[in-house]
Amino acid sequence: MSIPEAADRRVRIAVQLQPQQAEYGQIRDAVLRAEDLGVDVIFNWDHFYPLYGDPDGKHFECWTMLGAWAELTERVEIGALVTCNSYRNPDLLADMARTVDHMSGGRLILGIGAGWFRKDYEQFGYEFGTAGSRIARLAADLPRIKARLAAGNPAPTREIPVLVGGGGERKTLRIVAEHADVWHSFGDVETLTRKSAILDEHGAAVGRDTARLVERSVEVRGTPGESGKALVAAGATLLTVGVGGPDYDLTRLRDWIAWRDAR
């Protein structure tokens, strides 16, 4: 099973539980509460330091956490929004994904991006390079990831959906067109609409019907009444609410889930 094609998609609500400024017990509690609310997908992110608040505050590693979530949850899909491709050997990352896929009973989304947060690179000894070199590495590594997934024994339980995050119009969207099942966009409705059209141009160039095969994903701001209808009209069907620690207030997530259910 893979990501449904456009005609079969329903609007789904995700939450990104940002693993910062909190004890792990608070994150674990938020995962359970989000699943109980009826969310479709629970994401974390792949950083080593907080992005907001105290820059040296509490923080936890992405993939170790996803393994725990695979056992903790029963229904929701899980994944990173997004994994930094630069932090792990691509064959290792693929085998980690295959393992979490089995641990979760086939509920992993492999979210991935080129990386951008300089502090992570410098503090953990990775070469930061340039935006261009990081994007080029992502383009080179995705075929390796897919090949390693195909070679795994046992094989993944399903064709693990690949979500690529980023909005670079010339290079990143070309990678999305070639490799992704889901594209995570950043920006408002107008940005989503414009870049979605560019993605489809890349899809035509590589011989892939991205309008049909690539789901549009976006982080939502504000209330469903303010942007929900417009985002869906622009083609987005995976809508993510970002929530930070330490309290993980899910009030806004509850509103988006109610809006989804009322559609």
Rank of each mutant, 00 (worst) to 15 (best):
D8H: 10
R12C: 13
I13S: 04
Q16K: 14
A22R: 07
E23S: 11
E23R: 15
R28G: 04
R33H: 09
A34T: 08
A34C: 13
E35G: 03
D36E: 15
G38P: 12
I42H: 08
F43T: 06
F48L: 08
F48H: 09
P50T: 02
P55H: 15
K58V: 00
T64K: 03
L72G: 05
E77A: 12
E77F: 13
P90F: 09
D95K: 15
M96D: 02
A97D: 05
S104E: 03
G106N: 07
G106S: 09
G113D: 08
G115Q: 12
F117V: 01
F117D: 03
D120M: 14
F128Q: 05
G129Y: 07
T130K: 10
R134W: 03
R144M: 14
R148N: 04
R148L: 11
A150W: 00
E159R: 15
L163P: 09
G167H: 01
E169W: 03
E169I: 04
R170V: 12
R174G: 02
A177F: 00
A180L: 10
V182R: 14
V182L: 15
H184P: 07
E190Q: 14
R194Y: 08
K195E: 08
D200E: 12
R208A: 03
T210C: 08
A211T: 10
V214Y: 01
E215K: 13
E219C: 15
V220A: 11
V220S: 07
S227Y: 00
K229L: 12
V232K: 09
A233K: 12
A234Q: 01
G244S: 11
Y248L: 13
D249W: 14
R252M: 12
A258G: 02
